[in-house]
Amino acid sequence: MSWAWFHRFGSAPYFYRVAGRLTPWFAWPAGILIAIGLYGALVVAPPDYQQSETVRIMYVHVPTAWLSLMTYSWMAVAAAVGLIWRIKVAHAVAAACAPAGATFTAVALASGMIWGQPTWGTWWAWEPRVIFELVLLLFFLGYLGLRGAIDDPTRADRTSAVLAIVGIVNVPIIHYSVEWWNTLHQPASILKSGGPSMPWVMLWPLLVMWLGFTCYFFVIMLTRARAEVLRRERGGSWVRNLLSQDGVAGSA
């Protein structure tokens, strides 16, 4: 296998250009899939026989929680790549994930609380999956805090990368928490042995939302990573060429 592509992505101008070209290819599917998913979730899917209409919260809560885990995983893997191969673009990707990831995690917790109130009878339960999702939020915030506290960009990259990598252990813990502990939180309905436990009419809107949120992640990550790359390279000659090309008006 040739590693040429890997090195090419490590080049800041190449990454900036390709990321910019890729963004619409994720943005359009994200918008369309989320719109179809919302229609399925709010119109097509029937109310649950136990949870009634509150089951619809699943269609936003589960994809948001998935988004928080995916964002953290990307952040940790990019941080590791940056640390091991000393690739600046990888550090930029890691740094791009953190602010969005923190908001995804906070909203996953919030929609979980809104769902918990009618189904568990309480807004907040100290149960494993909730606790570890809260830990995930603390890792995101800790990562952001650490970066903000270190002035030297290279040192900020390397130190925060270590924190991001340490926190990755939390991701499988959140995923398997409902199997390892006997908890209040619902067990997995999709990724489980024996296939999904939901009828198709309830399942497809969730799958479409999940796919839409996955595309959405790349829109946010690529846009923020481009901004990070630009900040790190603002003195570089390619940035100068780029800015003189699009003149005074300047477009994204």
Binding site: R226, E228, L230, R231, R234, L243, A252
Partner: peptide, 12 residues
């Protein structure tokens, strides 16, 4: 995200 990209360009 878009604002962040725009401000990075303006800074540069």
């Amino acid at each position: 995200a878009r604002r962040s990209l725009r401000s990075a360009r303006a800074e540069a």
